[in-house]
Amino acid sequence: MSNANTSPPPGSGSAGGFFSSNPLLTLIFQRILLGFVLLFAISALLFVGIEILPGDFAQAYLGQSATPEAVANIRKELGLDAPLLQRYLGWLGGVLQGDFGTSWANKASVSEQIGKRLGNTLFLAFWAAIVSVPLAIGLGMIAVHYRNRFIDRLINIVSLAAISLPEFFTGYLLILFFAVNWGVAVFPATVFADMAFTDRLAAIVLPCATLVLVVLAHMMRMTRAAILNIMSSAYIETAELKGLDAFRIIAKHAAPNAIAPIINVVALNLAYLVVGVVVVEVIFVYPGMGQYLVDAVTIRDMPVVQACGLVFAAVYIILNMVADVLGILANPRLRHPK
């Protein structure tokens, strides 16, 4: 932004003065700071929340063979007999250095495993986003163009139907038709390290399609509503009267002004693509964070649950932060302070 490069007015040497004279930067700085405070709060909440959950790792791990001595041994070995605050601070210290500790169940480094799993989840989310965001915005614009006519209604009904089905059901339907009945898609969607890129893409077609169907309606409808709102403005009427063609008006004149709410809803849905995939990953047997989290929850492997929880929270907060910052930047009233 041009503002960031302008030198501060004379007399404002300190940083405070700089920010007070530059409300845009102040806003962004505040927003980022708030994000970090939130992350800290969530880390504490996660730790305490998991602590007060019923169920115990030692008992879940030993199952039918949990004798009191065996349970006590495991608890001692894992350092669970130390006070809560001490354990939290130790864990937080590690996290700040990028070390999420070791899994209780197999003693492997959590950071290392999360690295691989997060990569897979992001890969799936990336392709789902590549397909769904342009598709949603494009469909939204088409719906605006044909508003209240057959095509608009069709787009609305189909996308609403897709969002109304629970995602596991959408997933099972896709598996039933595309994998079992017609045999055209790959299932299960297991991907692994030395897999060719094209095989990898083929493997994620069905989970990707499921995710697209789930997030499409929300973004599409928000695009449609935001643009329709702008379409009633006087300057659009001017553009129409100038004789511009309808799509050009929607894409060039209306859409940029509707960008803030659209960015917001896109960011929310991108966050969902990362953190909301637990069920989709499990039914498609996709080795991402969601499946890793489910594995860990079933055996109460708390370091893994905490790490996954924190990573999910971070993704959510960061994407929301980015949306807010972009929203701020997209707002001309904040960009050009009086």
């Binding site: 039933l176 045999g183 299932f187 499990v282």
Partner: peptide, 13 residues
């Protein structure tokens, strides 16, 4: 997942 297992078998995977 049981359903996924059954689908993987019936689809020949």
């Amino acid at each position: 997942d049981l359903t996924a297992r059954m689908a993987a078998l019936t689809s020949g995977q």
